[in-house]
């Protein structure tokens, strides 16, 4: 197990390192000169050179790369062109909301998907199966930002049940409110984006669960369980479903990765103050250090999720170690 753990951990770090390197050269090699973005055209040439030297842009590319790596190791991700604050400060603020939204959504859709998948695998060819698959797939391929806006329109704009966006209401958080009312306020903001994400994601795990169950059904131990005279529900839940859950773990990590990539859209529509909306803001305002770091962290979260899924899989199914 230890060897397996070390191999996977090494693989994850190597992947992150490759992403980092790729990103660095992408930012340096593409036509836009990073210096020209922070430099005011009215500056004197001397001032311009001084700035270039300060940012290390006058050195050769490979030296810049090592400089960048050294800075990263010290936790220095650069300074935002926009705000002048260290990038890391903003990231630390923006990471928790993203993690909160997407891990909850992934877990919810995982549970919902496994539950539905279990039911439809047992009733193949029924009307219920057709209906669930069609609804699930329609939501799976729906254009997410548009769907989000419709949900906002109905539940926030027309019915006024939920806030139109954001994560916190300032009046609750600045005032002397207790922990419970703060948590309720957060939950109140969380409901709509969470519902939209879960609805669009659960079909993935539902179909994997169904396929996985169908593969298990012809196995002999299922027949043995049936032959013992166990009720169908017990055969389904205790014997088949438990083993069928394994492939779902991989699909869980994949769906998390996918939803984080699409998180840019969800966060933009719901004005969720996470990493995704920060990337959009940074790219629009050409704040490259910010965009680069936010992207790096987003990729880091995805890699971490994959690593955890891999390790979990290895723990649950010793054959893959």
């Amino acid at each position: 197990m230890l060897g397996f753990l070390i191999r996977r951990l090494g693989g994850a770090i190597a992947t992150w390192f490759a992403v980092l390197t790729l990103l660095f050269f992408l930012f340096r090699l593409l036509p836009a000169d990073p210096a020209s973005l922070i430099l005011d055209p009215k500056m004197t040439p001397e001032a311009r050179d001084l700035l270039r030297r300060q940012f290390g842009l006058d050195r050769p590319l490979h030296l810049q790369y090592f400089l960048y790596l050294g800075n990263l190791l010290q936790g220095n991700f650069g300074v935002s062109f926009q705000t002048g604050r260290p990038v890391l400060e903003t990231i630390v603020e923006r990471l928790p909301p993203t993690l909160l939204l997407f891990t909850t959504a992934s877990v919810l859709s995982f549970v919902l998907g496994a539950w539905c998948g279990r039911i439809i695998a047992w009733r193949r060819g029924s009307l219920l199966e057709g209906a669930l698959v069609l609804v699930g797939l329609s939501l799976y391929t729906v254009f997410l930002p548009w769907f989000g806006m419709l949900i906002l329109w109905i539940f926030a704009f027309q019915l006024k049940l939920f806030p139109l966006g954001g994560m916190l209401s300032p009046e609750v958080w600045i005032g002397e409110a207790g922990v419970i009312s703060k948590a309720l306020d957060l939950l109140h903001h969380l409901v709509l984006p969470l519902a939209v994400l879960t609805a669009t994601m659960f079909a993935g795990s539902m179909l994997v669960m169904r396929a996985s169950l169908l593969e298990i059904l012809p196995e002999q131990y299922i027949m043995a369980a049936r032959a013992k005279g166990l009720p169908e529900r017990i055969v389904r839940d205790r014997h088949a479903a438990r083993n069928a859950l394994l492939p779902l773990i991989t699909s869980f990590a994949l769906s998390l990765a996918f939803s984080m990539g699409g998180g840019v859209l969800t966060e933009t529509v719901f004005s969720w103050p996470g990493l995704g909306s920060e990337i959009v803001k940074a790219v629009v305002s050409q704040d490259f250090p910010m965009a680069q770091a936010a992207f790096l962290f987003l990729a880091g979260v995805v890699i971490l999720a994959n690593l955890i899924a891999d390790l979990l899989y290895g723990y649950l199914d010793p054959r893959v170690r």
């Binding site: 190597a14 992947t15 490759a18 992403v19 790729l22 992408l26 593409l30 036509p31 836009a32 990765a257 984080m260 990539g261 699409g262 998180g263 840019v264 859209l265 995704g276 990337i279 959009v280 790219v283 050409q286 965009a291 936010a294 992207f295 987003l298 990729a299 995805v302 890699i303 994959n306």
Partner: peptide, 22 residues
Amino acid sequence: RLVDVLLILPLIPLIMLLSAFL
């Protein structure tokens, strides 16, 4: 390994970045 790395990258933000450069 190249496939692994490319599959990890969040696609929409990546395309946004590229489009910003172009």
